[in-house]
Design a protein around this nucleic acid. Structure first.
Length: 474
DNA sequence: ATGTGC
């Protein structure tokens, strides 16, 4: 391990990076810019590292805007890996006087949602096939009814889940019929930020606000990449008091949702990538990294409003993915209670100490707050509680982190046996075989060391572990 | 991340 590490440090030095490592925490900065704050990465020695991700972190920390504002700190979680827009997944960026749209990207308010269900695992598995057929219909073949009035859609984009609920309670339609509205109303407090950021429907695709009935084919769909919906079993409870308070008990059926704002986030993210370029001061050289911050006060607040608009949509997307599943459980098993444990975004910009914290694939981990860290397909997932660690910028990892690219897995000649891919015994429902391979357990780092390193560092504590029964991938 | 694509 040690020679390998030394080789990595030497290679990074040749590429102009100054890197130190104390066996737990890396500190990275550009040699050419001693005034930039160092970027820190929590990473145990036995986890694989990629030089490109360090490069991206160092450049993010060195980011400046000619007219002011500053990067205060950059921190990365142990699941960090290179991002294709120039910002590593797992980056947490603390700024003042500027924001960086690329530090969130297009997958705005990608996040996690966890429910537990009052149903035995045996009873569930006895009707697995019927359940799978119904859910395939909802998630893959569009048998869901997610129509909204344009009033409800507009209220959602502006005022989040509470706004949507108000309009929907008033004039139920489509997805509202599917939803148990009273229960949803009671569950709003278990959504991070109450399921609302102040948005503006003008930033959303026009089809979502057009007068009449809005039928959005993307709503209540899982999406690609690492997104999934998984049925799980609560395997072990470590913190009994907290688990009890959150309604989580050993042996329960559970379901976990990992999804985001779909096309709406892409619409906003792409538009603002363009705007950031156009707003860059005339004559100033573009940063090598290609990452462009916004410093103008009006542009900053407009961007945050646009990001919030997509974030509100993502909250509803996860809510409806859960609602379809909850409704299907009721159809098959009668009056099953399946309460929300928590819903938390891990791709979002939020106010922090007079400035902003942009998380790209990092879960908020303020003190006492539920933290959801999914394992890769087939692996254990974790329900944790945050410790509010300031050095970690109150952030935990958002998963195990990708270890191999999609392409490296799909490459001809690679060993694609079920065993080599780690797919043996994994019940994965997917429309496309490639997806199962691209997202196979072998594509990801092991979750255990990622979680343990964060517990040891005082960032999170374990509340419960969940093991997978059935995974839906689009 | 995205009705993608080394």
């Amino acid at each position: 391990m040690q020679p390998k590490l030394n080789r990595l440090l030497r290679a990074l030095a040749r590429e102009g990076l100054e890197v130190t490592y104390d066996g737990r925490l890396y500190s990275v900065r550009l040699q050419a810019d001693a005034n930039a704050p160092p970027a820190e990465v929590l990473l145990p020695p036995d986890l694989p590292v990629e030089g490109k991700a360090f490069q991206q972190l160092a450049h993010l920390a060195a980011l400046r805007h000619p007219s002011g504002g500053e990067v205060l700190r950059v921190r990365a979680t142990p699941d960090f890996h290179p991002g294709d827009s120039g910002v590593a997944i797992g980056s947490v960026l603390h700024t003042r006087g500027l924001v960086v749209p690329g530090a969130v990207g297009t997958d705005i308010n990608c996040g996690m949602r966890l429910h537990v269900a009052d149903l035995s695992v045996d009873d569930f598995l006895a009707r697995r096939d019927a359940f799978v057929e119904r859910m395939k219909g909802h998630y893959f073949f569009g048998t869901r009814d997610v129509a909204m009035s344009s009033r409800a859609s507009t209220a959602l984009l502006r005022d989040g889940i509470p706004g949507w609920l108000l309009e929907t309670l008033d004039a139920p339609l489509g997805c509202a019929r599917a939803a148990d509205l009273k229960q949803l109303d009671a569950e709003v407090e278990r959504i991070h930020l109450g399921g609302v950021l102040r948005g503006n429907p003008d930033w959303a695709p026009e089809a979502l606000t057009r007068e009449g009935v809005v039928r959005d084919a993307g709503l209540a769909t899982i999406g690609g990449g690492n997104h999934f919906v998984e049925v799980q079993r609560v395997e072990a409870v470590e913190d009994r008091a907290r688990a009890w308070a959150w309604g989580v008990r050993e042996g329960q059926l559970a379901f976990m949702i990992h999804s985001g704002s779909r096309d709406v986030g892409k619409h906003v993210g792409v538009a603002w990538k363009d705007r950031a370029r156009k707003a860059w001061p005339q004559g100033a050289p573009f940063p090598d990294s290609g990452i462009l911050p916004l410093a103008d006060e009006t542009l900053v607040s407009q961007y945050l409003e646009a990001e919030a608009t997509a974030a509100n949509y993502a909250f509803l997307n996860r809510l409806l993915l859960a609602e379809l599943l909850r409704q299907t459980l009721r159809e098959l098993f009668g009056d099953v209670e399946a309460p929300l444990v928590y819903d938390v975004p891990h791709n979002i910009t939020l106010p922090h100490e007079g400035g902003f914290l942009a998380r790209k694939g990092a879960c908020p981990a303020a003190a006492e707050q539920p933290v959801i860290i999914p394992g890769s397909m087939g692996a254990t997932s974790f329900l944790m509680v945050g410790c509010g660690d300031a050095r970690a910028l109150e952030s935990a990892s958002h998963g195990a982190g990708r270890a191999r690219s999609r392409f490296s897995l799909a490459r001809a000649g690679a060993d694609q046996s079920e065993a080599a891919l780690g797919l043996k015994g994994v019940d994965c429902i997917s429309l496309r075989e490639e997806r199962r391979v691209e997202e196979a357990p072998a594509a990801y780092k092991p979750i255990r060391p990622v979680v343990d390193s964060q517990v040891e560092a005082g960032i999170v504590r374990e509340v419960a572990r969940l093991s997978p029964l059935l995974t839906f991938k689009a």
